[in-house]
């Protein structure tokens, strides 16, 4: 039954992807991308990846749709028909697909417990998590502790991307000019005149933020953690900015605070590692943080998850405001 459902969803996924590439209207393409992400999240859930499904739903369907729409507002939504012949690209794609399809026949079947990927460190992680950390969510344990270096790197990639976006979008002809505040146009006033979305939206925002905090602090016991929580809370704040206008949202969380959150979150993560080193352990080895290695691990994971949450939330909101503050040129 589940297999049937999965086949149906995967087919739908492929069809949606074709529709996205086919359409000439970029606005439609972005909306279809939202559907694509949601389908992808469902597929992830069927494949037992609850944490990943949560992230994909919050980031793929929420934040990246928002970013695409913000860009379309500045660049226009119609794609001009391409003059170059699709034949050569079609040929390249066809040959590559044939090679890849041929390669899939070498793959182990879906769900094969003897597949090479299941033999390496994964059983060890599953076995050692209750012993070393004493909490149930193995994904959080691997993310924050066993592969803490990896995650630290990812947080710094997010930080770097955020810095890059802020640099690129704070210069040039469309840069927001602090001296002459722009005339409040439709997006900056938000949906103030639309009573129903505003009332319902404001009703939902506290619940969204609360759910984000739950995902943040319950990440060791149920699907969740800093990455998902950061994305969910950022989505809640973006909803607030859409309803009340960007100005009001910047009053609640000014850009300086957001940048502080990004840098502070990344630094917090790094500092936990350094403190561990000063206390006699290795970098990002949390067992020395407390007299009991297990509670040390738990403390370390809790703190770095907070760092991740702050960094992701701050970065996504700073990026959103950088796009929203941009004026349309020409």
């Amino acid at each position: 039954m589940v297999t049937l459902f999965a086949v149906f969803l995967l087919t739908l996924l492929v069809l949606t992807a074709i529709a996205v590439v086919q359409t000439k209207n970029l606005f439609v393409a972005v909306m279809l991308m939202g559907i694509f992400s949601l389908l992808m999240a469902t597929v992830f859930f069927i494949l037992d990846a609850a944490d990943v499904a949560l992230t994909e739903a919050a980031v793929g369907a929420g934040i990246s749709t928002m970013l695409f729409l913000a860009t379309l507002a500045l660049t226009g939504e119609h794609e001009k028909p391409s003059k170059k012949g699709p034949w050569i690209s079609g040929l390249v794609v066809a040959i590559t697909s044939l090679i890849l399809i041929d390669a899939t026949f070498e793959q182990p079947y879906l769900g094969d417990p003897m597949a090479p990927v299941q033999q390496h460190v994964a059983p060890w992680y599953l076995e050692m998590t209750p012993e070393l950390m004493d909490f149930p969510n193995v994904v959080t344990a691997v993310l924050a502790s066993f592969r803490g270096y990896d995650t630290l790197g990812e947080v710094f990639v997010v930080l770097t991307a955020c810095i890059g976006v802020l640099f690129i979008l704070s210069a040039g002809p469309g840069a927001p000019n602090p001296k002459s505040p722009r005339i409040p146009t439709a997006p900056s006033v938000g949906l103030r005149h639309h009573l129903i979305p505003r009332v319902v939206g404001k009703l939902l925002i506290p619940f969204i933020v609360l759910f984000g905090l739950y995902v943040q602090f319950h990440g060791e016991y149920s699907p969740g953690g800093g990455f998902q929580a950061g994305a969910i809370i950022a989505a809640g704040m973006i909803l607030y900015a859409l309803l009340e206008g960007e100005k009001q949202a910047l009053k609640v969380l000014p850009q300086s605070v957001l940048i502080g959150m990004v840098v502070g979150g990344a630094m917090l993560y790094g500092m936990v590692g350094v403190v561990g080193m000063l206390m006699g352990g290795n970098f990002l080895d949390y067992s020395v943080l407390s007299s009991n290695p297990v509670s040390g691990q738990q403390i370390g994971i809790l703190i770095i998850e907070i760092g991740v949450g702050l960094a992701v939330c701050g970065a996504l909101l700073a990026i959103f405001h950088a796009f929203a503050a941009r004026r349309s040129v020409g």
């Binding site: 992230t55 980031v59 793929g60 990246s64 993310l143 990812e154």
Partner: peptide
Amino acid sequence: ILTAIVVGVSTLAL
């Protein structure tokens, strides 16, 4: 993949 999704959206923003 969990971390890659979030990194993916930041690079997309760039």
